[in-house]
C-alpha cells in the first residue's frame, strides 16, 4: 500500500470556491443573507417607512390633493369623536373575539394535547390545520350563507322551536339586527370562527409542554381534578392563551373584509384604512389609521413578552 498524499489536490472551481468560503465564512453568510435582507429591507421596511411618511402628510381639504410637507394635523384627526369611536369599537370587538376564541379553543386544545393519541392526534391536527389554511374568503362566504335571514340558522331555529329565542337575541340593542348577517353579533361570530385555529395551536403547544408527571404529582398531593385544573393546568396554559391572543387580537384589528360583508357596516380600523385610501382618496389619514394597530400591537407584544408568551409560539 503506497501512502496517498496528506493533502488532496484542488479539482476545479467548485473546490476553489469551497476553499474561499471556508477561509471567509462571513462571505458565504453575506451571500446567503444578502438577497432576502435586501428584499425585506427595501420592499417591506421601505414600505413601512413610506407608510409612516405618508401619515405625516395631510390632505388639502379643498383640492383633495396630498400636501407633502410634515404635519401632525392628520394624527390630530384621529382624535375626532367619530374616529375615536372607530378605534374603540375595534378594540372592543378584538377583545371580545379573543375571549370568545379562548373559551371555544380550550377544550379542543386540551383534549388534543392531553388525551388524543395516535390516529386521533392526526385527526385533531388536521382538523385544526385545514380550516386554518383553507381559503379565508370561502370561510367568510360560508358564513354569509349560514347567517342569511333565509339561511340555515333561521331554518334550524324554527324547526327546533327556538325561533323565538333567535328573534329575542336579534332584538337586543347593540348586538342585534335585522338578521344575524346584518347584526354585530354576526360579525363577532364570524371573527371567532375565522381566527379560532390561531388560538388553538399555541394553546395546544403550551398544554403539551405540561408534563403528565406534574399532573400526577398534583393528584398525588391530594388535589382534586378541578383543583389540579385550576392551580396547575390553567396557569401553565396561560402563556399559550396570550400567544394565541396576539394573533386573534391583531387579526381582528386589521380585518376589513368581515365587517364589510357581515354586520352593520359600522366602521372598524381596517375598514377605515381601506375606505380612506380608496374611495375617499385620503392616503395620509389612511396611513395614520394604519399606524394605530401597529402601536397597539407593540404595546400588546411588550406585555405578552413579559408574560412569557413567546415561549409558546
Amino acid at each position: 500500500m503506497t501512502a496517498s498524499p496528506a493533502i488532496l489536490p484542488e479539482r476545479g472551481p467548485g473546490d476553489r470556491l469551497t476553499a474561499l468560503f471556508w477561509r471567509r465564512p462571513r462571505l458565504l453568510l453575506a451571500l446567503l443573507l444578502g438577497p432576502p435582507l435586501i428584499w425585506l429591507g427595501v420592499v417591506y421596511l421601505g414600505s413601512l417607512l413610506a407608510l409612516l411618511l405618508q401619515s405625516f402628510y395631510s390632505i388639502d381639504e379643498f383640492s383633495g390633493v396630498v400636501k407633502e410637507e410634515f404635519t401632525l394635523k392628520t394624527y390630530a384627526e384621529l382624535f375626532r369623536a367619530q374616529n375615536l369611536d372607530i378605534i374603540l369599537r375595534t378594540l372592543l370587538m378584538s377583545a371580545a373575539v379573543t375571549l370568545g376564541c379562548a373559551i371555544i379553543a380550550f377544550p379542543i386544545a386540551y383534549y388534543a394535547a392531553r388525551f388524543a393519541k395516535g390516529r386521533w392526534k392526526a385527526v385533531f391536527y388536521l382538523g385544526v390545520m385545514l380550516p386554518l389554511w383553507s381559503s379565508y374568503l370561502v370561510k367568510v362566504y360560508a358564513w354569509k350563507l349560514i347567517l342569511a335571514k333565509e339561511g340555515i340558522v333561521t331554518w334550524v331555529a324554527e324547526h327546533i322551536g327556538a325561533g323565538v329565542i333567535l328573534n329575542a337575541v336579534l332584538a337586543l340593542p347593540g348586538i342585534g339586527g335585522n338578521s344575524l348577517s346584518t347584526a354585530p353579533l354576526g360579525t363577532f361570530l364570524v371573527f371567532v370562527y375565522v381566527w379560532l385555529p390561531y388560538m388553538i395551536l399555541p394553546m395546544q403547544a403550551a398544554l403539551e409542554r405540561v408534563p403528565t408527571t406534574m399532573l400526577e404529582a398534583s393528584a398525588d398531593l391530594g388535589a382534586s381534578r378541578s383543583q389540579t385544573f385550576r392551580t396547575v393546568i390553567l396557569p401553565l396554559a396561560l402563556p399559550g392563551v396570550v400567544a394565541g391572543s396576539i394573533f386573534t387580537f391583531s387579526l381582528t384589528m386589521g380585518d376589513y373584509i368581515i365587517p364589510q360583508i357581515i354586520g352593520t357596516s359600522a366602521r372598524f380600523i381596517g375598514l377605515a384604512v381601506y375606505q380612506f385610501q380608496g374611495t375617499a382618496g385620503n392616503l395620509p389619514l389612511a396611513a395614520a389609521f394604519a399606524v394605530v394597530p401597529i402601536v397597539i400591537m407593540l404595546v400588546y407584544l411588550a406585555i405578552a413578552k413579559r408574560m412569557g408568551a413567546f415561549d409558546a409560539l
Binding site: A6, I7, L8, E10, D15, T18, A19, W22, R23
Partner: peptide
C-alpha cells in the same frame, strides 16, 4: 489554508 474536503483525514 486547506479546507476539510482536501485534507486526507
Amino acid at each position: 489554508d486547506v479546507p476539510p474536503n482536501r485534507r486526507n483525514v
